[in-house]
Amino acid sequence: MEGFDESIGGKWKLLRNENFDEYLSLMGIGFLKRKIACAFTTVMELTKLDDKRVRIVSDGPKHSDSVVILGDEVEEVDPFDNKIKVKVNWNPETRVLRTESYPIDDSKAKKAFVERKIDQETKELIMEVTLPDEKGGFVCRRIFKKVE
């Protein structure tokens, strides 16, 4: 987990979204719930617990608190209550926390990749969500500023 604490570790407050409403629409979320979700200011906290475990807490329109073991594939439920398989990896060279998720069973989930990384110029945390099977690779970005 080299470089985790110095880069993405800590508490982050949402500054702005790019294509978030469209992302929620693609995920099957109705108009009213999308507008509520877009109006919320999300706070995310990333904590390294040891060399293999990371805790990810997100407070916004929906609270989530999970501990992931890097490199392990596990079954979970996404924020939209769909069953998914999830695998999280940390790349110490690029300092990117990458999550891959795939639908399981009769889930309505979509294949997705989430990368969390720091923009070296602005020092903002960029959370980029890619739906590779949508519109030639739909991308949503959520930009966060570190909370001191």
Rank of each mutant, 00 (worst) to 15 (best):
D65G: 09
V67M: 08
T99F: 13
I69M: 08
E115V: 13
V114T: 15
L70S: 10
E115M: 13
Y102Q: 11
N89M: 13
F80Y: 07
E76A: 02
K87C: 04
V86F: 00
L70E: 09
D105E: 15
P103I: 04
I118N: 12
E115R: 11
E121T: 15
V68E: 15
I118V: 14
N91A: 11
F80D: 10
I104Y: 05
W90T: 07
I84P: 01
E76I: 00
L97K: 08
I104F: 00
P79I: 05
E100C: 04
R98Q: 15
K108W: 06
L70T: 15
E93I: 09
G71A: 05
V86H: 01
T99W: 00
K111P: 02
S64N: 13
F80Q: 07
F80E: 14
N91E: 13
E76L: 00
F113K: 09
P103Q: 09
I118A: 09
I69P: 01
V77P: 09
V67Y: 10
L70P: 06
I118P: 11
K83E: 11
Q120I: 10
D65R: 01
S64P: 09
N89Y: 04
T99H: 12
V114D: 06
F113I: 15
A109Y: 02
V114S: 11
S107I: 02
A112N: 14
I118M: 14
L97G: 12
V86W: 03
N82K: 14
K117I: 12
P103V: 04
K83F: 04
A109K: 05
D65V: 01
T99R: 12
S66L: 11
V74E: 10
N82C: 11
S66V: 12
E100L: 09
N82M: 07
I84N: 02
I84C: 03
E76H: 00
K83W: 11
P92G: 12
V88R: 10
V96R: 12
D65P: 04
P103T: 06
S64D: 14
K83T: 12
F113T: 11
Q120K: 15
E76M: 08
L70Y: 05
S64G: 14
K87E: 05
S101T: 15
E75G: 09
V67N: 04
V114Q: 14
